[in-house]
Design a protein around this nucleic acid. Sequence first.
RNA 1: GCAGGCGUGGCGGAACGGUAUACGCAGCGGACUUAAAAUCCGCAGGGAGCAAUCCCGUAGGGGUUCAAGUCCCCUCGCCUGCACCA
Length: 852
Amino acid sequence: MTEHRYNVKETESRWQSAWADKKVFEVTEDPSKKKFYALAMFPYPSGRLHMGHVRNYTLSDVVARYKRAMGFNVLNPMGWDAFGLPAENAAMENQTHPSKWTYQNIAVMKNQMKMMGLAIDWSREVTTCAADYYRHEQKFFLDFLKSDLAYQKEAFVNWDPVENTVLANEQVVDGRGWRSGALVERRKLKQWFLKITEFADDLLDGTKQLTGWPEKVRIMQENWIGKSQGLQFRFEYDGQGAQNSNIGNTLEIYTTRPDTLFGASFVAISPDHPVAAELSAKDKGIADFVAQCRAIGTSEAIVETAEKIGFDTGLKVKHPFIKGASLRVFIANFVLMDYGTGAIFGCPAHDQRDLDFARKYNLNVIPVVIPDGQEPKEFAVDMEAYTGPGRLYNSDFLNGMGVDEAKAEAIARIEKAGMGEGKTLYRLRDWGVSRQRYWGCPIPIIHCDACGVVPVPEDQLPVTLPEDVHFSQPGNPIYNHPTWKNVDCPTCGKEAQRETDTFDTFFESSWYQFRYCDPQNKDRGFAKDKVAYWAPVDQYIGGVEHAVMHLLYARFFTRALKKCGYLDFDEPFTALFTQGMVTHETYKDSAGKWLYPADLKKVGDKFVHAATGEAVTVGRIEKMSKSKKNTVDPVEILETYGADAARLFILSDSPPERDLEWTESGIEGAWKYLNRLWRLVMNADFNGTGGDTDAMRRKIHKTIHDMTQDLEKFHFNKSVARLRELSNALEDFSAAKGDGATLKEGCEVLLRLMSPMIPHIAEELWQAMGHKTLLVDAKWPEADASLLANDTVTMGIQVNGKLRATVTLPKDMAQADAEKAALSEAGVQKAMEGKPARKIIVVPNRIINVVV
RNA sequence: GCAGGCGUGGCGGAACGGUAUACGCAGCGGACUUAAAAUCCGCAGGGAGCAAUCCCGUAGGGGUUCAAGUCCCCUCGCCUGCACCA
C-alpha cells in the first residue's frame, strides 16, 4: 500500500453520506432480533451545539454502534425539546417569533450533529413544539383528568409587581426580578397539578429495582420522595386562641421526632398558614411580617438559606403531656406550608433550625436525648443541635428509652388521648404543570361561567397556539391575545374562555422516549405494540443535573400512561448513565473581563490576547459557560480536526462520569493518534515472516477481551488506552517484519474495536485493507479463549505488607512451593533480618505476604 | 440550609481490599533536517546515595486488616440538585 495524507474532511463526509444513503441506522421492529434502545437526552435547541452535547452524543453513539456490532436491532433516535423560556426571551430581545427562532436553531444544530457522524435514525426525529407532537399530550392530560390524576389547586408563584408577570426561579436574582429589579413576592394562583404523590410508594419501591442506574441517582430519588414516619397531632390552644372563632380550638402539627416532645419550647407556623392569614386580617404587625416573609422567591434553596425570622403571634398552646405548661406560637419563615401541616413544634436541642431560632429569640433549649455513654449532667447543647441516637431523659414516661422506642410510645400515647395519629408522609409534592407562558403546549381546558371547568372535547384537539402574538407588553402573550381565548362552551354553548396557561416543558420530555418508537402516528401518541417492542430504553445517557426531576417525572408519566391503558410497564429507563460536565480554563484581561480561548495566542508558555498582545490571567478550570466565555465551539473543532478526533479526545481523557477538561493539547493528541493509526495500516507489510507471533496474537485477543468488558462498563477511557497499547504493539511488530497474517489480523481487530469510537477513519482504513463491505456492518470480534491464559505470573512478595521483591512463577503454583520460592528471594531474606516467618499469606497468582 | 457526589505525579487519569501511577498530555535527552515542523528512539512521583538500595508518598487526621487509593469515623476543599432553566 502507498501512503498519502489522511484527508479528514473528505473522508468523514464521504462515509457519513454512505451510511445515510444505505439507511444503515434506520430500523424497524424485527421480532427475530434482540432489540436495544440507546437514548441520549434530547437537546433544547438553544442555537448551537455545545461541548456537553458533543460529549453526550458521542457516548450514546459508542453504545449504539457497539450494540449494533454485537448483533442487536438498535434504536438510536434524536429530537428536540423545543418548548421553553429561552425562545420567549429571544423573541423579546430580537423581535423574532419563538417558533421561527426555534426552528432555525434546530436546522443549525441538526447540521452540526450530522458533522459528528452519529449513528442516528433521523427518520424518527421528534420536535416537541409541533402540534402533531403536543396534540397527543393534550389527549394524555384529558385521560389523566378522567383517571383522577390531574386536578386544580392554588399554588404560589414568583410575582414581579412591576412587570405584572410570573417569573421563573431563574429569573429571580437576589430576590428581585431580573429585568425590572423589583422585589419579587410570592403570590397565589389557581394551577393544574398531576398527582405524582399517588405513586409515591410505588416510585420508591421502583428505585430499588433500578439496578442499571447509578446508586447515587437512586439515593437522590429516594431522598426526594422522602418517606417519613411521624406523628400528626393537634395542640389545644391555651386561653385566647379560642376567642378567634375562625382559628378554632386546636392547631395541627406534624413531626418526625415525636420522641422529643418533652424538649419542645415553641410552636411555629408557616407565614402561608391559614392561621397566619386569619391573624393578619386583624393585626397590622402580623400582616407586615407575613408580607416581609413573602417578599422572597418560591425556591426552597432561597427560603432555607434566608435568615431565620419569627414573629410571636401572642397565641399559646398547651403541652400535651406536661400539665400547666404552654408554648408560644410563632410565625416563622423557615416553616414550609408545602410539607406536613405547615406547622411544627420546635425542639431546639435536637434540630439545628429550631436551635438557631431559639438562640435568636431566647427560647428554652431542653436536651431530652443523651448520646450513649454520656451522663445527662455532662451533656449540654450550645450552638450545635444533637440529632444522633441515644437515651431519653427529662421526658417522664419516655425516660430511658431509645429514640425509636420513644417515638412509638409518644405516638401511642397521643393516639390513645385522641389528639392525633401516627402518619406516613412524603416530601414529594404533586407536580404543578401550569405555566403562565406562551411557548408551551396549551392546556386543553375551557372555563365556563355556567359549567365550570370543561375539558376540550377530544375531536377538537389539538388546541394549537395562536401565532399572531406580541411580546412587547408584559405578561403572558397568549392571555393578552385579543380573540384566542374566546370560545363557546362545548357543554352549554355559551361564551367561555380557554385556559391560557401552558404545560411545564417537563411534560414533553416525560414521554418522548415512547414517541420515538412510533413517531409518525397521527391517531395517538404511540401504538402499544411498537412501544412494547422497543421500550423500555435499555441505555439512557445524559447529565446528572436531571438526576431527580426529569427522571422522576418520566417515571411517574410511565405509570400514569399505564393506568390509562397506553402501555404495560412501569419503568421507562432500564439503565441510566450520567455523564460529567465539560470544563475549560478561564481567562481574563487586565481589566478583569472574561476572554474566549479562541481570542488568545500562546507565546512561550504564557497566553496573550491575540489582537492586542496584552497579557492574560489564567483562572480556574470551570464548567464551560457563555458568561465566563470559557467555551470552545464544537464546529470549529469538527472543521479543524474532524469528528473522529473530537470523539476520541472526549472518550480518552476522562472517565465519562467525571468532568472532562477540554484542552488544545488533548485534541491535538487525538489528532496525532489518528495519523499514527493511518500510517500503521497504510504502511503495513502483510508479507512479513518474523516477530513473536505468539505474543502478538495473545495481545490481540487479550485486547478484544478486555476492551469488550470496558465498553460494557462504560470505561471508555480505558478502552482508548487499550487501543493505543494494541497499536503500539502492532507498530513494533510491523517494524520487526512480523508475520503478515498476524499483522493483518491485528490491524483488522484494531479497526473493528475502534469503529464505535472513531467510525470514519476505521471505515476508511477497513476499505483500504481491501474490504468491499462496510465496517459498520461487521460483527464485533470474539476473543480466542485459548490465547487469553498465560503460563506464568509475576507475583509481588511483601514482608510485613511492604513490597520487597517480585518473582515470576508458574501459574496456579502450589501454595507450599510459592512460599518456598518467596522465602528464597534475597530481598525477602534481607527484609526478614533473620527472624522466622510467623505467617505467610499467599493470594494465588497475585501476592505473597510474609509476616515476621 | 437540606440532599448527593468528587479529591491519586507538573496535568487528564490506571489500579477484583493484594506489585500505586497503565495509557496519554506537557517536559527533558537523542535521531532525522541547512533549519523548523512533523516523525522516530529513550528518560521520567519526591528525597538520600557513585551504586546496590533505602525512606516518604493517593486532600488532612484517626481506625479496621497480614495488607487500605479502595472499607469505617471525623475535618477541609470543590462540584451538582432543591420542585417555574432545561
